[in-house]
Design a protein around this nucleic acid. Sequence first.
RNA 1: GGGCGGUUAGCUCAGUUGGUUAGAGCACUACCUUGACAUGGUAGGGGUCACAGGUUCGAAUCCUGUACCGCCCACCA
Length: 906
Amino acid sequence: MSSSLSTRYSHKEMESRWYAQWEAGGYFRPASDSKGKKSGDRRYVIVIPPPNVTGILHMGHALNNSIQDIMIRWHRMKGDDTLWVPGVDHAGIATQNVVEKKLAKNKQTRDHLGRKKFLEEVWKWKEDHGSTITRQLRRLGASCDWSRERFTMDEGLSLAVRECFVTLHERGLIYRGNYIINWCPRCQTALSDEEAAHKDVHGGLYHIKYPIAGAGKKAERIGVDHIVIATTRPETMLGDVAVAIHPGDGRYRGLVGKKLILPLLEREIPIIEDEFVDPEFGTGMVKVTPAHDPNDFEMGKRHDLPQINVMHVDGKINSHGGPYSGLDRFEARKKVVKDLEDQGLFIKRDTHLHAVGHCYRCDTIVEPYLSKQWFVRMKPLAEKALAAHRAGKTVFYPDRWTKVYTNWLENIRDWCISRQIWWGHQIPVWYCGQCRKGDEDDSQKGIVVSRETPQKCPECGNSELVQDPDVLDTWFSSWLWPFSTLGWPEKTEDLKHFYPTSDLITAPEIIFFWVARMIMAGLEFMQEVPFNRIYLHGTVRAQSGLKMSKSLGNAIDPLEVIDGVGADALRFSLVMLSAQDVYLSTEKFDMGRNFTNKIWNASRFVLMNLEGFKEGATTLDVDRDQLPISCRWILSAYEAKAKQADQYLSSGFYLAQAASELYHFIWNDFCDWFIELAKPALAGEDASEKLMAQKVLFCVLEKILCLLHPFMPFVTEEIWQKLREMAKDGETWPKSLMLASWPEPTGYRDVETERHFMGLQDAVGAVRDLRAKFNIPPSQEVSAVLKASGAAGEMFKVFSPCVERLGKVKLEIKSDFERTKAYVGNSFADFEIFMSIEGLVDADKEKERIEKKIQETVKWVTVLNKKLSNDNFVRNAPKDVIDKEKEKLVEAEKILKSYQEHLRLI
RNA sequence: GGGCGGUUAGCUCAGUUGGUUAGAGCACUACCUUGACAUGGUAGGGGUCACAGGUUCGAAUCCUGUACCGCCCACCA
């Protein structure tokens, strides 16, 4: 292998090569695993938010997994016992839809095949396509422990689901009953409240006359022969069993107890009173349809009204709908309205904006539908989660999500967990054909809830047992994920060592679906929260502001981006943008691409200049005082930025800020300034000067690669390996940068040098500025006078070669110099620089500004002095507050002095 | 109806505890085909930090209110 880098950065081959080597080396597995014992006090464990098995990697995944991989790689380098468990969920409804669609191409349906055959088809599909997304995660560079990969339909996880269901049932937290649930007529299954996404729809508010029964004399007495109700779903009137008014509504006094004739079906229904009715809305009269509206359902129970279900599972009207039977719900709506019109009972249709539930898988409008389903009683679970929150066990980043989370828990409703599909965990409940008279039987008799498949009915001994055909909500397996993936309900070593995990990193969209439920399950089954910190990163959106999705056609495929600019560029760009929601367009990846290229070329330069260099070491063995200012400065700047980046990562998921810190250090400090300043030494005659520059370049580059590795694993590994070959002690280095140690503080921080260097930068900038302003070609050497006295003067005597080189200028340093009209110049805090060309410098404006600032600062100093000489304050304030005030005073005086100095120079 | 977030350069956005001249990337202008890099370099133009009040010696930053945009939650038919 050559120790130099090719002129162009090509990522493709490199990415697959390194990924394969890392995985083969077993570097993704936790350290405790390979040593055969559970070790290390410091663990870092995360579980992947399981992507949908039907899914392909989209930008949301790319961002989420980039962040996770950064955290994992960072902790691994810090020496933590690190575990990242990958896996996918079976996505019951989505997967079944995909397979059904495939069957439909061959004119087949699942009913033709039968349950067993159909499930075989799904498993076959899973074998063929189910690993797409995990393959794609590998391309992103995700360093998951693939040997622990899990699938929610695995044997172990299925066992966990059964254990969970049966245990909850034993604890009285699972029940079955007839309730209004969200029903998707297209998927033909029940949905949970979270799966019915409310969207605002401009619908109609239809006003309909209901005639009062036996009009005639009664009508005369009341003065009306009909009442008017308003509804958004006229077709549901077929299931009306009453009309309700508010008890205090004076307008309808005397009507209560009267009967109405339900139009179209000519059924007699009563007028009732109920507190629920809002007299202000519509006409103040509500039709009551207990089988098709959750409020009406409750009202029906209060008044002991019948429930008339008028719809089939596919959304078509059933035989209760009389003449409308067989029509789809929306066709029925049209026909109902038309018939009412014909009978003179239709008054008007107002447009009305209201929220309508849509199936989150197929976007069909869901129907509130009465059916028999299994539910989890959530309140007791939520209370435990709230208690854990009060105990400070769940911390959200950013903090604002805490309230969203607790609000939801405080208003939690029971969770409908049964789904009328086939792909999923079949409910572990069996019904005895002997003891029960069929599904209408509401007794508990002959219902067997069991971990093991029962052979016979425990009550009558009959073997005629039929398992509940429904399966469980996919989230009913996902909510066990943090411990089911570690082996639960078995008491495994993994579970003992790795639970609870450290962080959960996910998108805010699934805070209710998944995050909250995992916490509840963790507390219920493990008696401990599943993770301590929860980081909810931004949502990836298209430039338009809409959520990126394939169906909207506004998605950017991360795989295409990886093909084009590489996984490193993709990761870095995404993370740089992730301080809030990420609005993407393809150009945004240029930043990452350009940066990768910059690193590549800077490294190429360093390596070229290190030919034959066999001195490299991870620690600098040069006495700091012997180093030239540029070296002292870059080492110090490195120290400052590394510390800052580390703090950003440690203190609460400030990944974007950490990335930005590194970006600017590398590009501006290392490349633009340090490399430029190192060039003369590298090209010069002085061997020891050259060696020093080489050592510093080598050392800083090596550390940069370490810091950057979590963000851009591939390029950094490639370059680092070259350094490893070059280093004298290279054999003692780890085999991969992945296993290298996160850099410790070097102790090279030198604030004074940094300050001096800023002066140097200002001087060079000033010369370049004057050059540009007066159109002096870069090739032309110019001369300038640098006026500085005291410490600054001494300083510039040392720096002048640097300034002269970078500014292409011949400097004359003077402690005293009067500028005449023949000179132009730039002024700084402790020096001025002049060139003998006519021009302009606007001193008046600057003077005014500084004078104002001085006034302010003088006041500030006065205030602080007053405060600190106030006995009361000094006696009573806490010590750290006083210290802080004192520090402020020092700072204020410093600032004031620098202003005054500046003013004097103007 | 409730809650949350945003409003900073032409565009996309940083700006953690109030403090020296509000930053970056892209775009723009001028110059530079300098042996790491044109996916580059140097310099420059461009901002009353949405608006109105308030607190402070000092506010993009803290408080109050307004406007507009976005998101989430919600059983008024």
